[in-house]
């Protein structure tokens, strides 16, 4: 596998036939790190640098002004609705798909993945077509004075749509791999369906569930395109954090835009840290079999 760079005296080659020469190794590591530095590390650092460039006072003023606070609240609200709903959906879908054999299972798995392959802009647009003023229910909603598009319900719907697959696709392969023997034993011993689910299945998948929830939450709080289409961009009322970043940036208020952006970057870092922790608890990197996230 990997090579430990042993301190060998110059001129003596001690490498195995399946290792590369040291200069090749160093060149490849250098190239990979240069690429990652230009495209990943520097952008990440620059968010915090730009946020704090004008001083800590400007930073805290930007993230505590009323519009920013309203945006934080709306982002938390949308995630607080979307994540639990997709969690219940993920558990139901994984229970049906992993514990039973039925026709059309592969088609169902593909359909669950569908939101990942739809452009965020299109994800928002489809709700405008249904609930917007010119949409299917538009006239009826207008008559009854119910606002969905350019209001909070639309933002929540778009957030649910883009995060539908996250928890399901973590749980399905995990529960498939675990099989049905334990649940069958519980049922044979007289446990009810819900008892089996809460006492046997749920403890077995808790890390996978947490993993999916973390990724689902990150996307729910960070979604931009889909939410942008249905939001209407009303400051202090239908602006989520990512949309607030856009408004500040377009007003050339860069320090404030990056200050708010740094909150989202922190969220991303916390997400990655939790994800790495869960992976290490899980003993394996199951995410690598499912890179089709986001």
């Amino acid at each position: 596998m990997s090579t430990i760079a042993l301190p060998t005296p110059a001129g003596i080659h001690r490498r195995a036939a399946t290792d590369e020469p040291a200069w090749v190794r160093r060149t490849l590591i250098g190239l990979a790190l240069t690429f990652l530095t230009l495209f990943l590390f520097v952008p990440l650092i620059s968010v915090f640098y730009e946020a704090l460039k004008k001083g800590v006072d400007v930073y805290f003023a930007a993230i505590t002004e009323p519009d920013a606070v309203a945006a934080i609240k709306l982002t938390l609200t949308a995630a607080a609705i979307a994540v639990p709903l997709n969690l219940i959906f993920g558990l139901a879908a994984a229970w049906a798909i992993a514990k039973f054999e039925f026709r059309g299972k592969n088609l169902l798995i593909t359909l669950i993945d569908l939101p990942f392959s739809v452009s965020p802009v299109v994800s928002g647009l489809i709700y405008v077509l249904i609930f917007g003023l010119q949409g299917w229910f538009g006239p009826w909603l207008a008559e009854n004075d119910i606002k969905i598009i350019f209001a909070v319900p639309g933002i929540v719907l778009a957030t649910i749509f883009v995060t539908v697959p996250f928890i399901a696709r973590e749980l399905i392969p995990l529960m498939q791999a675990q099989g049905t023997e334990e649940e069958e034993a519980a049922v044979v011993l007289g446990a009810s369906g819900w008892q089996t689910f809460f006492r046997v299945t749920l403890p077995n998948v808790k890390w996978g569930l947490l993993y999916g929830t973390i990724l689902c939450n990150a996307r729910a709080m960070g979604e931009f395109g889909a939410v942008s289409v249905v939001s209407g961009h009303i400051r202090g009322s239908t602006n989520t954090l990512p949309l607030h970043v856009e408004i500040l940036y377009n007003e050339y208020n860069f320090a404030a835009a990056f200050a708010v952006a740094s909150l989202l970057a922190l969220l991303a870092l916390v997400t990655l840290a939790l994800k790495t922790f869960v992976e290490s608890r899980n003993g394996q990197n199951r995410d690598r079999e499912n890179p089709n996230e986001h």
Partner: peptide, 13 residues
């Protein structure tokens, strides 16, 4: 761990 940053970082940021 940071390779996954583009998955976790909101696109607007």
């Amino acid at each position: 761990a940071l390779v996954d940053l583009p998955f976790a970082l909101p696109t607007a940021v």
